[in-house]
Design a protein around this nucleic acid. Structure first.
Length: 204
DNA sequence: GCGACGATGGGCT
DNA sequence: GCCCATCGTCGCA
């Protein structure tokens, strides 16, 4: 193997807002039975601290949230709405609950496998939501708690490119209906526009 | 033990 | 744009 571009523990140990912004433009990889399924991260959200009333850790340390309290650089995968899996990366120091939710990627590797899992869905819609990413890449409860920094990790992130601040748009997080202010409106959602969706079709 | 509800997506109006 | 499927988790009795 050539030199690794895999992001290490120090990256995830940074402030969650910094991690979120720097994750934009990087390559999310799932080794799915030996096959690389990957996409460029284009949208993320920050969930940070017990005081954040939108963060699962608002309820404190529970069996569900314990991964968020663990060391940085691990995957926090949880189930919601009776049918959807969500992928998060644990950040900051052990003992402080914080994570980045991966909301959207642009698929770049393993497109045939992804297409097979997203039947009758247009390519530009394959992975434009957090649950869609997990469905397309085959991520579920098995991956909760795994180490993104391990040398043979099933899920990891590769350094791909740096996205300048001017290319990043921010806004309130999505789907926080009954969350009190200021958490409901705090601009902890980060997006960037990447290459056009037609490129996906070209490489199929 | 049990009721309420959710960091959503997909299909239908 | 609106509705709702579907079930794990939490919190309270």
């Amino acid at each position: 193997m050539p030199k690794t571009k895999q992001l290490g523990r120090d990256f995830y140990a940074q402030n969650t807002l910094q991690v979120a912004k720097e994750l934009l433009g990087q390559r999310l990889v799932h080794m799915d039975n030996g096959q690389r399924l990957a996409g460029i991260i284009s949208e993320v959200e920050v969930y940070r601290g017990e005081e954040d009333q939108a963060c699962h850790a608002r309820a404190g340390f529970t069996n569900r949230t314990k991964v968020m309290y663990g060391p940085p650089g691990h995957a926090y995968v949880y189930f919601t709405y009776g049918m959807h899996w969500m992928l998060n990366f644990v950040t900051e120091t052990e003992g402080y609950p914080a994570a980045v939710l991966i909301r959207a990627i642009q698929p770049v590797e393993g497109l045939k496998t992804i297409a097979a899992r997203r039947v009758q869905v247009a390519p530009q819609r394959w992975t434009d939501g957090p649950a869609k990413i997990c469905q397309a890449l085959g991520i579920d409860a098995r991956h909760n708690g795994i180490d993104l920094c391990a040398s043979q990790s099933e899920i990891f992130v590769e350094m791909e490119q740096q996205v300048s601040q001017t290319m990043i748009t921010t806004g309130p997080r999505v789907g926080l209906n009954n969350v009190p202010e200021p958490w409901k409106s705090i601009p902890w959602r980060f997006r960037t526009s990447l290459a056009k969706a037609e490129n996906i079709i070209d490489t199929l």
